[in-house]
Design a protein around this nucleic acid. Structure first.
Lengths: 107, 107
DNA sequence: TTACTGGTTGGCAAAATAACCAAATAAATG
DNA sequence: CATTTATTTGGTTATTTTGCCAACCAGTAA
């Protein structure tokens, strides 16, 4: 792989990596229903607020979310909604895996 | 997040995590054009064959690839082709980021 | 059997991630 | 201005991931 190709895949991997965490996946899923402030997400996820803030900054850094401060609160929303397409296929993989699991059990 | 919800997002994150690496992303992209043996992928990526083999086992473990041994070689192929949908959206994010980058530079 | 080729596995060191706490910042309020 | 609330940032430690090497395993062929 030459340097340019490597860069290409690194840039793409960074975006996918930003999604590759349960809490961050939850956040993306939740924001598909509309913007949320950090404190709402903290209440839903139940981790330290600094942890939530860091997850949000990873997603924002990747270009998946954008934020807006209004008063004391910061609201986050999806910047590129097609991100939700991921979920459908992930579901398909899980279904296929369940079948595989069932098949393995059958043996 | 209750335990069940957490599990749900962990299962999904595991699949996305399997894609979240430049070499593994390259492999998925390459296999979209047809099956390849480990040695072909090693030649294209240029890492140690044990490294390639481990990447493949991560993707296989997630249920994204399947393998078949024929003679001395092991061929890998996509098990769930919808995985390719990821690329389109990742492209969109990159385009949006490029615009953002341009805008930032403009300031 | 011996040797060879293609691939996997185990182990290790280096690098990247994750989660928490504490401290800093920023907007609103008394 | 001092205080409170919402969030971010810095620092630390624990965990996970990565990539290489060496050793091992599975077919194939001499």
């Amino acid at each position: 792989m030459d340097a340019k190709t490597k860069q290409k895949y690194e840039a793409r991997a960074q975006i996918i990596k930003a999604m590759a965490h349960p809490s961050r996946l939850f956040i993306v899923d939740e924001l598909s229903r509309g913007e949320r402030c950090v404190c709402e997400l903290r209440d839903m996820i139940g981790a330290d607020i600094s942890t939530i803030s860091k997850h949000l900054s990873v997603l924002k850094g990747a270009g998946i979310l954008e934020d807006e401060k209004r008063g004391l609160q910061v609201f986050y929303r999806l910047r590129v909604p097609c991100i939700l397409n991921f979920f459908g296929c992930v579901e398909d993989v899980l279904v296929a895996n369940a079948r595989r699991g069932a098949a393995v059990v059958k043996k």
